[in-house]
Design a protein around this nucleic acid. Structure first.
Lengths: 95, 95
DNA sequence: AAATTAATTAGACATTCGCCTAATTATTTA
DNA sequence: TAAATAATTAGGCGAATGTCTAATTAATTT
């Protein structure tokens, strides 16, 4: 949980997560999105992986990164503790 | 939003938020909960206030701190962007 | 008005963070 | 097998973070 809060406390890492909503991408494709060197992106990916916000799967010479539910769940769980004290906008229907 | 992510990226500040679920407390009462000096707690309270996760109201010589929905909402909103790609445990009924 | 109490502000210091360049590892292609 | 490509690891550096002590501000009490 500690790792998840740390991971999302950075604009670049949050943008990487946003980018991965589109679907899995390799490190090079991710790095291309940012005005930053590949080693820097590599480091951000490492922190996101530690937080279990993303998964990494090696496919030959490439590494495919994708969103990982686990890290999001740990944040969600923390958040739920407060959601009971506030009312947050809810969808009209439950799917 | 930036400020909210920063604010919750610290165990002490998250514990302060937890503590305030019980209801409003003044700075001294909050500080008593932690093995840390009052100035340090004061600084944490300031960051939480900047993030609009708490409100501060001066009552005479005391300052009463309480949870503020606004900061939580900004985190919630960010989170919702991902909630649509994952299924998170939902309550059985909508209240 | 002087002393006490609640809390903050100021300034210093060690640690962590984010970024860079250079070097390394691993895989594929010529 | 040599060259090229994908990505990471290593190391350095300035900025930001968290904590402390000392000083300050503001309100209450005697």
């Amino acid at each position: 949980m500690e790792a998840a809060f740390k991971a999302i406390n950075d604009a670049t890492r949050r943008e990487i997560l946003q980018f991965l909503i589109q679907g899995p991408q390799n490190a090079g494709q991710i790095a291309k999105q940012f005005a930053m060197t590949k080693p820097s992106i590599s480091h951000h990916l490492d922190l996101l992986k530690q937080a279990q916000l993303i998964d990494a799967v090696k496919k030959g010479q490439f590494i495919h990164y994708s969103l990982n539910k686990k890290g999001f769940e740990s944040i969600h769980q923390w958040f739920q503790g407060f959601a009971q004290h506030f009312e947050f906008p809810k969808p009209k229907i439950r799917l």
